[in-house]
Amino acid sequence: MTGNPTLSPKTFTEAGRVMPGEAMTVQGTVNKTAILLLLTTVAAAYTWQLFWKGETAFANLWLMGGAIGGLIMAMITIFKKEWAGVTAPVYAVFEGLFIGGISSLFEKQFPGIVIQAVMLTFGTLAALLAAYTMGLIRASSGFRRGIFAATGGIAILYLVSMVLGLFHIQIPLIFGAGPVGILFSVAVVIIAALNLVIDFDFIESGAQQGAPKYLEWYGAFGLMVTLIWLYMEILRLLSKLNRR
């Protein structure tokens, strides 16, 4: 199993095989990931500049709309993989609107934090991709099980936190800027980063198995889900460090 809920061992095998010219490739997935990153960046720049212009109410609408829209498009993409060529770009735009708003709020409180988070996110991506390409790290079955369990635990913890938040109850320590909170964020960043390795492995496997071309968009979507999660966790970690 994979820690990333968008990619599973059956994602590519269930789609069947096609002729070589119609099959997905790693390079095709990389190209589509670049397109999604561009769409996310452009949308993020829009809500970012709204906040900095002082149009907070309008910007908040886009932020919330991006969060809700991104979740809806993610679910549609997961259940209708063949639609990924349309839904993945729309997901990227929605997530960009959300990320741009959130990032501007962090930046106003801690100047310089966003560029640090962006550099660390892409630095982590580059380092793990290089390590994976050179064979220094591989997604063995034990590795996948461990990351899946850890990712699932984090998801449950966040869900519980959201539910408790509705009743104005906060889980102590882990979301604070103390040593426990910082160690928790470091652990989550590591888990999020290691999900990238599993994503690389599944995309490579899909290309080797001759999966349909539309799964290039789906593979790119899966990578974007992990990258956005990693960026948000790094941003959260940096904010804790800045509050100390």
Rank of each mutant, 00 (worst) to 15 (best):
H168G: 01
G70F: 06
A15V: 08
V42G: 03
G28M: 11
S103Y: 05
E216Y: 03
M162N: 10
F184Y: 15
P172L: 07
G210R: 05
T87H: 05
Y132G: 09
T2S: 13
T41G: 10
T29V: 08
A23W: 04
D199C: 04
Q109C: 00
D201N: 13
K108W: 05
M232N: 03
W52K: 14
F106V: 07
F143M: 09
W217P: 01
S103G: 09
Y132C: 12
Y91H: 15
E204F: 03
A67K: 02
K53T: 08
A126Q: 02
V189K: 00
I182N: 00
G152N: 10
T2I: 00
G135R: 09
G3F: 07
F221G: 01
F200R: 03
A34E: 06
L223K: 01
G135W: 05
R144Y: 01
A74G: 05
F122Q: 04
T41L: 14
S140A: 07
T25F: 05
L39F: 13
G16N: 04
R243E: 01
A84V: 09
F200M: 05
I115T: 15
L196G: 01
I190A: 15
E107M: 05
E95R: 13
L159R: 02
T124M: 13
G101N: 06
T25H: 10
T29G: 11
L227W: 00
K32Q: 11
T56E: 13
G165A: 09
L61Q: 11
S103T: 09
Q116W: 04
L36C: 12
V118P: 02
L7Y: 03
G123E: 10
L230D: 02
F51N: 11
L105T: 07
G222F: 03
A192Q: 08
L37E: 05
N31E: 12
E216R: 04
M75E: 11
G123I: 06
A15T: 08
A34G: 03
Q208V: 04
Y46I: 15
A43R: 05
A211I: 03
V42H: 04
T87Q: 04
L7N: 07
L63C: 04
A117D: 09
A193D: 06
F175I: 07
M64I: 14
A67P: 00
I190V: 15
S140V: 04
V160I: 15
Q170K: 12
K32R: 15
A92S: 14
G28F: 03
T124S: 15
F58E: 14
G69A: 10
T124I: 14
T226H: 02
G123V: 07
T29F: 03
T77V: 07
I234M: 10
I234K: 03
L37N: 07
T124F: 05
K80L: 13
I182Y: 00
V42D: 10
R17S: 14
Q109F: 01
G146Y: 06
A139Y: 08
I72K: 03
T121E: 07
F221I: 02
S8E: 13
S141W: 06
L61S: 05
A44F: 03
L129Q: 03
S161M: 04
A23P: 02
Q209C: 00
L105R: 09
V42L: 15
L136E: 06
R144H: 02
M224P: 00
F94D: 10
G54L: 05
T77L: 10
V30P: 00
Y132I: 06
V186I: 15
T87Y: 01
L159M: 12
T11N: 08
M134V: 09
K240G: 00
A15I: 06
